[in-house]
Amino acid sequence: MITSMKKHRAEEHEAFLEELLKDKEKIIAAIKNSPSVIRKQQEAIEQLSKLKPPFPWDKDRREEAV
């Protein structure tokens, strides 16, 4: 019974995957232009532009140079 359920689940998964992968490029292109991805990108640009020195990695680089 459990084996049969597992087999059914695996087949279901394979079918789902196969169907999705047919549209993989289309899905990926759409994801790239999703409002949430664009919003995340804008938030990151805004937040990172506000960060002021000193930056931890500047200290690391100075130590490396010595």
């Binding site: 279901e12 899905i27 991805v37 995340k40 990108q41 640009i45 532009s49 930056f55």
Partner: peptide, 20 residues
């Protein structure tokens, strides 16, 4: 059930501080 998950990695433009 099966839920499709996506990850997008985007380059942040060059007008950011150089050290980043």
């Amino acid at each position: 059930g099966n839920i499709l998950k996506g990850i997008s990695i985007e380059y942040i433009p060059d007008d950011q501080p150089h050290f980043l």
